[in-house]
Amino acid sequence: MADNKSRLFAELQQVSFVLEDLNLYLDTHPEDASALRYYKHYQQLRQQLLEQYTMEFGPITADNVNIKNTWTWVEGPWPWEGEM
């Protein structure tokens, strides 16, 4: 499970970075059709990975917290602890 968690997390991190970098490119090239297609593909992939990670391992953003009996946002390690 820990392996699956770190694999999924690394994938989410990579896909998120692709979107961040493309965001910058598209800011100055807003009509580049191939970049737009690329963005759309990774946008869907991030959404899917984010949902899967959140359901299985907990929230990445506070507004995506899966609400159960307790507030899980402040549980688990913060990124600077070096455990994620």
């Binding site: 506070a62 946002w73 402040v74 549980e75 688990g76 390690p77 913060w78 600077w80």
Partner: peptide
């Protein structure tokens, strides 16, 4: 301040 804060809930309050 949040990096060295050893209580996760409190680190969450500082972050948020």
């Amino acid at each position: 301040q949040r990096y060295s804060m050893p209580y996760r809930k409190v680190a969450g309050v500082l972050t948020d």
